[in-house]
Each structure stands twice: as C-alpha cells, then as structure tokens.
Design a binder for these strands. Structure first.
Lengths: 202, 202
DNA sequence: CAGACCTGATACGGCACTGTTTCACTTACG
DNA sequence: CGTAAGTGAAACAGTGCCGTATCAGGTCTG
C-alpha cells in the first residue's frame, strides 16, 4: 500500500503562510481560546480561505499549534540541561527560556495537549532532581508540575510595574519575573528559602 | 419617578426554577464555560424556554451566577472571621469554607466578575494581617490573591488518591486538601514553614 | 519563460446556538 | 374555586461560524 508522497512540491511561499498563521493563532488564542478563524486570518494578514487551505479543520490547526508548542518545550528542556545541570540552575534557566518564548500561556496551559509525555517526563525528572538535592520536599511529580505551571501562568501576566516585581530585584523585568517564579515555586513545594538563596543569589 | 414594582407576584414555583437553573449552570459551566443553554436546561430538568424566561439573556445568567458567587465569598470571609481571628487560622477556615461550597472553581476563577471589590478587600485584609503576623513575607496584596486563587484551583481538582494528598495527613480528604493548600500558599508567599507548623499542626 | 502552485474574492450550504412567539396545559395562591 | 402565573412543546427568524467550491490573478521554481 505505498502511498508515495505525490509530486506535490510545497512552495516556500505557502510555508511562510503556515508560519504566519500559527504565529497569529498563538497570539489570538492566548486571549480568547474561542476566537473565530476569521480573526486569526485577519491577525495573520491573510484571508480566511487560506487558513482553511493550510489547515484542513479548526482542530487540525489546534493540533499543529500544540505540536509546535510541545517542540518548543522539549527544546527548552534540552537547552536548560535538565538532566545534568544543578537542578536549581536548570529550573532557573528553563523558566528563563520559557519566558523568552513569550508564549500565550493562558492558552498553553489550557491546552494540555501540549504536555507531551516527553515533556512531562522532562519536568518530572527536573523536580525529582530538585527533591534529591533538597531544594524542595514535595514528592509527587504531578503536583510539582501543576504548581509550577500554574505559578508560571500567574507570573507571566503580572503587570509590569507590580510592586512584587520591582521588589524582586534585577533591573531586567524578565529576570525579575524569573526570580520571582523560582522563589515562589520552590517555596510552594516546600523548599527552604535558604537553599534557594545559596544557589541563586548573585 | 416612582416606577413602583407592578403587582407582579413572583410565585414560589418560579423561584425554585431559578435556583435549579443557577445550580445546574454552576455545575455545567464548571467543566465547559461555553456550554449551551440547552445543556443547562437539561441539567436542571427544565426546558430551554424556561431558562430564557427566568434570565433574559445568556449574559444575564452569567451575571446572576457571578453575583451569587460573590455573595458566597463574602459570607465565607465573614464566617472565617478574617478581621479578628489569628490570620493563619482565618486562612485555614476560609479555605475550608470555600471547599465546602464545592464551587466549580475553574469557572469561578475564570469569571473574575465574582471578585467584587468587597471580596478583594476582604482577601487583601487577610493577607495584610498574615504579613504583619510574620506568616508570610510577600507584601503585594494583588500577588497574594493571585497565588492563593491559582493554588486553590489546582488543589481543588486534584485526584482523590493523589500521593501528595494522602501524604498531607488528615483522614478526611477535604481536610487534607485544606492543609495542603494552606501549607503551599504560605510557602509560596515566602512564609517560613516553621511558623505554619506551630500554628496548625495538631 | 512556462507550468505548477498559491492567494483573494465571492458565494453557498450547513450547523449550532440564541432569543422570541404562540398555544395548550398544569400549578400555585388568594 | 377561579384567576393569574408558570411550564413544555413546537416553530420561527436571526446570527455567527465552519467547511467547500469556483475562478481570476499573482507568485514561485525549474
């Protein structure tokens, strides 16, 4: 049954369209998960018909988005050296990376499909190592994941001039958010703030 | 300008219907905020037309739901003696009360309309007192609120047999959840787990 | 350059949901 | 008990969105 891929060349043009659509979808869905495809098409500067050409159905678009998201998470986990670096450092770095992705996390969290088994495994490993290192006391990896992601979500859309944020030090706003998130997550998972300070104050 | 309320007697029958609709809406919207009014009508054992008779529009129903929710929060804050009781005890008690309400928090949190200024004030007061008592270090009340509500949400739909939950002690499942939430929230907001232990272990 | 590919515009059918109306019937309440 | 109110069933118009099709014109790519 060899359904050879027909001589269908995917023009570079079209591929740019898909990219623009995914980008727009990420932004639009972030603030309204029920947004219509037309709104996304507008945001992408394309016609609604084109969206339907690149993605057979709405769910196909959603799936592609989840896929892309999952890939980024995986890449982030790799870049953060979750397996080898000192766990607190890895946590800090991972958070940094995720923030840089500027993902619409309200969407991402809601779309649990982005949490591929591979991604979950990566996070679980990170938290297991954190616990072994004594940075946190919570044992249940699922719980750690939930808490981390929830707090990530909250920190992400924290207003820029928030007192909490400015008091978090670090001139860079993103860096302040990262510090806040790491400190809060570790605290939530039963870590002693001492350990945090030792490893991260600098 | 006296628009006297016309001799429109609201029959007890009808009032029961509104109650059933609100109840059903709470349950249905909890797991699908975009659910149709027909689904709610079914859940309430009524016809869709009746829903439209009791609530002029979909948003009217949403508003009524938010109103009801806000009332419950206010009542909870009062019952927890947020203003007078030792803050950690108040936090514990408030959490207990909110859980007992069995609210669909996925819905409630999403519907920020339920956070009336009055409710916000109550929560702010609670966290201010917690800080003054040294139970937490976070100063920004908005941040405290966000974190508390986010964690409340997470704990709420934690599977019954979760290792985190069973390890939280307390034979009663609800009590275990309450303990977990208080401990996690206090930790997240920079409280020393020592203080928590002193005030709550028992 | 030439053919294959991509796009926008326009239009259509279909679906699900909202909100309204009418009518016959049941139920509460004075 | 009798009237006013509430309800269910059925049907209607209106809307928004999805998915498809067609066609003319623009754009790559070999």
């Amino acid at each position: 049954m060899g359904g050879e891929s027909p001589p269908r060349r995917i023009r570079a043009d079209a591929e740019r369209s898909t990219a623009r659509i995914l980008e727009a979808a990420e932004a639009v869905f972030a603030e309204d998960p029920a947004a219509s495809l037309e709104r996304i098409a507008d945001a992408a500067g394309l016609a609604r018909v084109t969206v339907h050409r690149r993605f057979a159905s709405r769910t196909a678009l959603l799936d592609a988005l989840a896929e892309q998201l999952s890939q980024r998470y995986l890449l982030g986990l790799a870049e953060a050296r979750v397996e080898t670096a000192p766990p607190l450092v890895a946590l800090h770095r991972l958070t940094e990376i995720v923030f840089d992705l500027k993902l619409g996390h309200r969407f991402a969290v809601q779309l649990s499909a982005a949490l591929t088994p591979a991604v979950v495994d990566g996070l679980d490993l990170l938290f297991a190592r954190l616990r072994d290192a004594g940075a946190i006391t919570a044992a249940d990896p699922a719980w750690c994941r939930q808490v981390y992601l929830a707090l990530l979500h909250e920190v992400y859309d924290l207003p820029a001039g928030s007192p909490t944020l400015t008091s978090a030090g670090a001139g860079d706003e993103v860096e302040a958010k990262v510090n806040l998130l790491v400190r809060t997550a570790v605290g939530a998972l039963g870590g002693s703030s001492d350990t945090t300070g030792v490893a991260l104050d600098r």
